[in-house]
Simulated scan of single mutants.
Amino acid sequence: MGFARAVSDGKFRAYIEDVAIHKEFQKLGTGTKLVSILLEELSQIDVISLFCEYDLIPPMLLSVLSLYVFEDI
């Protein structure tokens, strides 16, 4: 179906490294759900980074990311 993973020092920084969803499960909210779970797991981390192409982020995921104060740079 898919996966999402992050690299972290366990305290200060985390980097969401990969989110990959099988083509059959794309546009069904699968990636959004996985990232939401990952962000909950990382909630004790001070700085969480996600680097990706803006136009590849589905609108549903953008609304989740905005809850965690992700910024466009």
Score class of each variant (00 low, 15 high):
residue 58 P to E: 09
residue 39 L to H: 01
residue 43 S to V: 09
residue 47 V to S: 11
residue 66 S to H: 09
residue 29 G to L: 03
residue 24 E to R: 11
residue 57 I to G: 06
residue 54 Y to P: 07
residue 59 P to K: 12
residue 70 F to A: 08
residue 66 S to M: 09
residue 8 S to N: 14
residue 8 S to I: 13
residue 12 F to M: 08
residue 46 D to E: 14
residue 28 L to K: 15
residue 14 A to E: 09
residue 4 A to P: 04
residue 72 D to C: 09
residue 5 R to V: 08
residue 40 E to M: 08
residue 44 Q to H: 15
residue 34 L to S: 02
residue 31 G to A: 03
residue 19 V to S: 05
residue 37 I to V: 15
residue 10 G to Y: 14
residue 46 D to S: 12
residue 61 L to T: 03
residue 45 I to A: 09
residue 21 I to A: 02
residue 32 T to S: 13
residue 42 L to I: 03
residue 34 L to I: 02
residue 44 Q to G: 07
residue 65 L to H: 10
residue 20 A to P: 00
residue 13 R to T: 13
residue 9 D to E: 08
residue 55 D to K: 15
residue 18 D to K: 03
residue 59 P to V: 06
residue 45 I to Y: 02
residue 38 L to F: 06
residue 37 I to W: 11
residue 3 F to T: 02
residue 19 V to E: 00
residue 42 L to D: 00
residue 10 G to W: 12
residue 13 R to D: 11
residue 29 G to I: 03
residue 14 A to F: 11
residue 39 L to T: 05
residue 40 E to W: 07
residue 72 D to R: 13
residue 60 M to Y: 03
residue 13 R to C: 14
residue 71 E to T: 15
residue 47 V to M: 07
residue 63 S to V: 05
residue 65 L to A: 08
residue 72 D to Q: 12
residue 6 A to N: 09
residue 53 E to A: 07
residue 35 V to N: 04
residue 19 V to G: 01
residue 24 E to C: 06
residue 37 I to Y: 12
residue 20 A to S: 07
residue 16 I to C: 04
residue 6 A to L: 12
residue 44 Q to M: 10
residue 41 E to V: 02
residue 60 M to T: 03
residue 36 S to A: 11
residue 31 G to Y: 04
residue 31 G to D: 02
residue 73 I to S: 07
residue 41 E to M: 11
residue 61 L to Y: 00
residue 51 F to L: 14
residue 53 E to C: 02
residue 46 D to W: 08
residue 11 K to P: 00
residue 54 Y to Q: 13
residue 69 V to P: 00
residue 29 G to Y: 04
residue 30 T to M: 04
residue 60 M to L: 08
residue 6 A to W: 01
residue 2 G to A: 08
residue 26 Q to P: 01
residue 10 G to S: 14
residue 1 M to N: 09
residue 26 Q to M: 04
residue 27 K to Q: 09
residue 8 S to F: 10
residue 24 E to S: 14
residue 20 A to V: 10
residue 67 L to P: 00
residue 33 K to Y: 13
residue 26 Q to W: 04
residue 25 F to N: 08
residue 66 S to T: 08
residue 59 P to Q: 06
residue 64 V to Y: 03
residue 9 D to G: 05
residue 7 V to H: 15
residue 21 I to S: 06
residue 67 L to D: 12
residue 17 E to S: 15
residue 3 F to G: 01
residue 70 F to E: 09
residue 7 V to N: 11
residue 45 I to C: 09
residue 28 L to V: 04
residue 41 E to G: 11
residue 72 D to P: 05
residue 48 I to T: 15
residue 34 L to W: 01
residue 25 F to V: 05
residue 12 F to P: 00
residue 38 L to E: 04
residue 34 L to G: 02
residue 59 P to F: 05
residue 13 R to I: 15
residue 62 L to S: 07
residue 54 Y to K: 15
residue 46 D to F: 07
residue 56 L to C: 11
residue 50 L to C: 03
residue 7 V to Q: 14
residue 53 E to Y: 09
residue 21 I to D: 00
residue 64 V to G: 00
residue 66 S to G: 02
residue 3 F to H: 04
residue 68 Y to H: 15
residue 40 E to K: 14
residue 53 E to F: 04
residue 35 V to E: 03
residue 56 L to R: 15
residue 41 E to P: 05
residue 63 S to Q: 10
residue 40 E to D: 13
residue 18 D to C: 06
residue 21 I to V: 11
residue 54 Y to G: 13
residue 11 K to R: 14
residue 15 Y to R: 12
